[in-house]
Amino acid sequence: MSETILGMSGIVKSYADGEEQRCVLDHVNLSVGAGELVAVVGPSGSGKSTLLNIAGMMLSPDEGDVAICGRAVSHLPQRAWTKLRREQIGFIFQNHQLLPYLTAEEQLTVMLGADRTATRELFGELGIANVATKHPAQLSGGERQRVAIARAFATNARLILADEPTASLDSERGRQVVQMIRQEAHQRNKAAVMVTHDQRVLDLVDRVFRMEDGKLIAV
């Protein structure tokens, strides 16, 4: 088997729900290797985003360990998390979440310190070379999401995390987006985890998991 990029074992997370504690993640294990695109499906409120936030070091689990590129990270201090997020993880959010005051290429160069030529090249690959100097407000929904994808790919992070990246797109554009993530994972040997509602893109992924009652089940 290939190198493990994301390893989550025994993850428990519960939230206070009124008086009670509601266990959203109940001893979840997930391991994703390099060159692999994994999809997580499941009903709304089942804890998919929570799982992704823990994998992305934005939320600490109540129990369990997270390892990225073989390195245990759960015990590291907050500041180290921020640095690791920048260096090791590329996020793609449901709504592009681009900064409105930066042009498309500045989202990568100014925010992440990406090289300008490399950014242009990446934009070319994703078919958005023509929008490099435009602000998000001037872009179409699909273009915005592709800029957001470029941002996730820019730092050469080994782990790509996408939370419903196709939710705001029509099915054709949604499919294109998933194809781009798949290609990045396969060609550049990255690990990608995608939360999705869209059954029609599941043929593009390598493995599918289902989140239900706090458990993650392989489909």
Partner: peptide
């Protein structure tokens, strides 16, 4: 929040 999520330091 987004800035922090993509690793911009406080």
């Amino acid at each position: 929040g987004v800035m922090k999520a993509i690793g911009t330091s406080t």
